Simulated scan of single mutants.
Amino acid sequence: MKEPVNRARAIVTTAPGNLLVPSLAALLEQEYGITDTELLQVDYRLSALIPLTDGEEVTTPGHPAWRCFDHQSPVYAEGTGYLPVSMRGEQRGVLRVAPVSDERQLAGLAEIATALAHELATIDASTDVYRTARRSRRLTLAAEIQWELLPGRSRLRPSFSLAGQLEPAYAVRGDSFDWSDDGERVWLATINGMGEGVVASMLTTLATGALRNARRAGIPLADQAALTDQAIYDLHRGEQYLSTLLLELNLRTGLLSAVDAGSPRLVLLRDGEVSVQPLEEQFPLGMFEGTNYREQYVQLQRGDRLFMISDGVLDATGGNVRYGETALDRMLRRTTPMTPLGAVRSLLGDLRAFVASDLTDDAVVVCLDWLGPQTGGDGVSTRPDC
Rank of each mutant, 00 (worst) to 15 (best):
V321K: 14
Q299T: 14
D70C: 05
V355H: 03
Y241F: 15
A189F: 07
D260G: 09
V365E: 01
R252A: 15
L188N: 04
R305G: 10
R45K: 06
V198G: 11
A222V: 03
P4H: 00
F354G: 07
G89Q: 03
A25H: 00
M331G: 03
L211K: 06
T53I: 07
R88H: 12
Y241L: 14
E281Y: 02
Q230H: 12
T205Q: 15
F307Q: 04
S310A: 09
R237S: 14
C367K: 01
A113F: 04
D102R: 13
R185M: 06
L235K: 15
P278C: 08
D304P: 06
R305M: 11
P61H: 07
Q41N: 02
Y170K: 12
E31F: 01
Q240T: 05
R131D: 14
Q30G: 01
M338H: 10
A121S: 11
I309K: 10
E167K: 06
Q41K: 04
P373T: 03
P22I: 00
T35H: 01
E78R: 15
A25V: 00
A226H: 08
G254W: 08
H63P: 04
H118M: 07
G174R: 11
T253K: 04
P158A: 05
I50F: 04
R334K: 08
R96H: 06
A98S: 13
Y32E: 00
I219N: 11
S126I: 06
T37F: 00
R92F: 13
L348G: 09
G324R: 10
L27C: 00
A225H: 13
A143G: 15
A189S: 13
E196G: 00
N18F: 08
C367I: 07
H236R: 14
R305K: 13
E239P: 03
L49Y: 05
A343Q: 11
G319L: 06
S47L: 09
A169F: 04
T114H: 15
R270N: 03
Q374D: 01
P16I: 10
L120C: 10
L266R: 05
R265P: 01
Y297G: 04
Q282N: 09
T132Q: 10
